[in-house]
């Protein structure tokens, strides 16, 4: 008998068809509604900004992988996702060159210097945004009133975000506007409905898990609700707190990033609650109007230690 060509490998010999690419692209698809809504309210320039960020992310990933002589994996979805998420945190009229610098920082400093996919400590999209906030504070803090039907934004249409209105003018914004997106703010934080539709798809696919997002949103709602009950004149109501700013985007799409959030169930809950507390503290008593970005970045830094101290007790050992 002729020699058979048989594959030799350790067990198991069967596996799920789920791949890293499937997961990454599913998250990208889940963000498309938010991208379309951004285009609808902030014009085609918003779409162009998103595409710019994605292309810059891919290019940066390529250059780093080439220089490090690593296999090129720019289309595994992770760079596209980082670019997309990063774009959704930007102001609609941010100059293109600033967005490109931010995307280079997100992929380069946020991810590749740590060793690429799976090795970074901080959420790359938020690293890019944090850099821009420090480097270009004025441009990053300029917000615009939404238009409709893919119109063109002009300088005349500047407008404060609901959180700024609340913080500095004690003025609330209608919840329905925040839910559907008729508010000024970053590209992706205007429409909670579009984001939640995407998040629902990710829950359905099993790619995100309730502990982190609900821990975060629940803590923000709970703590700001207590403050509102104590002094309703000074503090916003909990529903406002949930739908204002980047909380929905951050809680469902950034804090749930696998690489930079805890793996253990208890750890996930701690991450969500801790992040929520930081958001409320920064928003209500800090100098800034929004705290989602720093809340998540700080919790990213704590992730390794959270994992370490929330290790499950192994089978057969009494708790």
């Amino acid at each position: 008998m002729t020699e058979e060509k048989l594959k030799i490998s350790p067990a198991p010999h069967i596996a799920t068809t789920e791949t890293v690419e499937n997961i990454m692209y599913s998250v990208i698809y889940s963000l498309i509604p938010a991208g379309i809504v951004a285009g609808y309210f902030f014009g085609l320039r918003a779409i162009a900004l998103i595409i710019t960020c994605i292309l810059t992310s891919i290019a940066t990933e390529y250059v780093f992988q080439k220089v490090r002589a690593k296999p090129i994996s720019v289309f595994d979805g992770s760079a596209i996702l980082t670019g997309f998420l990063f774009a959704l945190t930007l102001s609609p009229r941010l100059p293109f060159y600033m967005a490109m610098i931010g995307a280079v920082v997100a992929i380069g400093i946020g991810k590749q210097v740590f060793g690429g996919l799976g090795h970074n400590i901080f959420n790359p999209a938020l690293v890019g945004r944090a850099f821009l906030v420090a480097a270009f504070p004025v441009a990053m803090g300029s917000w615009y009133q939404p238009l409709t039907r893919f119109g063109v934004l002009t300088d005349a249409s500047t407008g404060a975000t609901p959180l700024a209105l609340m913080k500095f003018e004690f003025e609330t914004t209608a919840i329905s506007s925040m839910f559907f997106g008729q508010i000024s703010g970053a590209l992706g934080e205007t429409s909670a409905a579009a984001l939640l539709a995407g998040a629902a798809y990710l829950f359905y696919k099993g790619y995100i898990e309730w502990r982190i997002p609900f821990g975060l949103v629940g803590t923000v709602a709970g703590v700001s609700g207590i403050m509102w009950l104590i002094d309703p004149g000074r503090y916003p109501d909990p529903v406002f707190s949930v739908f204002a700013g980047g909380l929905i985007l951050g809680a469902f799409f950034m804090a749930t990033d696998y690489v930079t959030s805890p793996i253990t169930p208890v750890g996930k809950l701690i991450f969500g609650i801790g992040g929520g507390l930081l958001v409320v503290v920064i928003r209500l008593w800090g100098g800034m109007q929004e705290g989602v970005m720093y809340g998540i970045l700080l919790m990213n830094a704590l992730t390794p230690i959270i994992n370490r101290y929330t290790r499950p007790t192994t089978f057969g050992v009494k708790q």
Binding site: K7, V20, L117, G118, T264
Partner: peptide, 28 residues
């Protein structure tokens, strides 16, 4: 078409191994 296609990526800490481990270990 019956066997696992091996296309190894870095661990993305998705935690699926922890979710399924019947012995409550952290395989990753």
């Amino acid at each position: 078409d019956e066997i696992a296609k091996v296309d190894v990526h870095p661990c993305i800490k998705c935690g699926k191994c922890v979710e399924v481990c019947p012995m409550l270990l952290l395989p990753y």
